[in-house]
């Protein structure tokens, strides 16, 4: 146990000293003024009033989606429902097929169809809540949705309502681990009803160095691929640890690292890529060639460097 703690501590210090960057940073996803970062499915479904995002639509089909896609993240927001409010947060979703992802339900207690599988905080139709939250309408609630690879955790006012290993939920088989985040337009059958949102923040775990690196050893094929995609977005600083993974003896991690290294260099070799990025990658690549212990990796990196020769 002591040894484990020691190793963990060393690993932690290493992680903090080498990998730490913007750790724990939440970025605003909603600026309180307009719909920057978002795309409306149809105009009129959502409006911004006094720093709040309001959906008053009647009927269905007026959802709003982030422009960017997210895989692993922690989403913070506040919501308020009117008496007949009915909305939800779409996760890892595809705007043209919202059912491709899943929905964390937001539902006022007006309808009889709100069992534990369909009430606020549930993963609608897939995972029931284990800890039912307060459902009083007309007041603000804090919500956190954490998507940590195959583990999804929903909390309301700091209490976990739902926790699911999505890989073990049969009805969620084949759901992607990556997609846009959406907010469902209010779809109560009564005029004047609404759902409101404010203080929407996101911490993108796929932008965090150590989190992404851990993904290369995941047993799930798609989650490993998500790590490859994320490391391409992270760019140059991923090259040294990826070279280490490629030189190691985990065939899964080696394979993903080899692909990620190619994709990072290939992306920077695009004629439209910024010259600065190319220069930085070239420099990190050359340093890594000098320090890498595996001949196979060194030869691979040398070959890759030919893609961005000066």
């Amino acid at each position: 146990m002591k040894k484990f703690i020691l190793i963990s501590t060393v690993a932690f210090i290493y992680a903090v000293s080498c990998f730490s960057q913007n750790k724990g940073d939440f970025e605003p996803l909603f600026n309180g003024k307009n719909l920057t970062n978002w795309t409306l499915e149809k105009s009129g479904g959502f409006e911004v009033v006094d720093g709040e995002l309001i959906t008053r639509s009647f009927g269905s089909g007026n959802d709003i989606f982030t422009n960017r896609r997210y895989g692993n993240f922690i989403l913070h927001l506040e919501f308020m429902l009117s008496k007949v409010g009915n909305s939800g947060i779409f996760i890892r979703c595809n705007p043209s097929a919202p059912d491709a992802g899943f929905e964390v339900q937001l539902l006022a207690p007006w309808t009889p169809w709100r069992d534990d599988l369909h009430c606020t905080g549930s993963i609608y139709g897939h995972v029931a809540i284990t800890n039912r939250p307060d459902e009083t309408t007309g007041i603000w609630y804090k919500m956190e949705i954490k998507c940590d690879r195959n583990i999804v955790t929903v909390s309301i006012n700091d209490k976990v309502t739902t926790m699911a290993n999505t890989d073990t939920v049969k009805s969620m088989d084949g759901k992607p681990y990556y997609g846009v985040i959406g907010i469902q337009g209010n779809h109560a059958d009564e005029q004047g009803q609404f759902a409101k949102f404010r203080n929407i923040y996101i911490r993108d775990l796929d932008a965090e160095f150590d989190y992404v690196l851990n993904g290369f050893c995941d047993k799930n094929d798609q989650l490993r691929n998500l790590a490859v995609v994320a490391s391409v977005n992270l760019g140059a600083k991923m090259i040294p640890p990826l070279a280490d993974l490629m030189s190691g003896d985990n065939p899964m991690a080696k394979n993903g690292a080899k692909q990620a290294l190619f994709d990072i260099v290939a992306k920077s070799s695009d004629p439209i890529a910024p010259a600065k990025e190319k220069k930085e990658i070239r420099s990190v690549l050359n340093k890594t060639i000098k320090t890498s212990s595996s001949e196979i990796t060194v030869n691979y990196l040398k070959w890759l460097s030919g893609l961005i020769i000066d």
Binding site: A266, S269, D270, P271, L307, I309
Partner: peptide
């Protein structure tokens, strides 16, 4: 206009 693509026309 793509040096990287031209690089891949051959392999040492």
């Amino acid at each position: 206009g793509d040096d990287a693509a031209n690089y891949l026309l051959s392999r040492a």
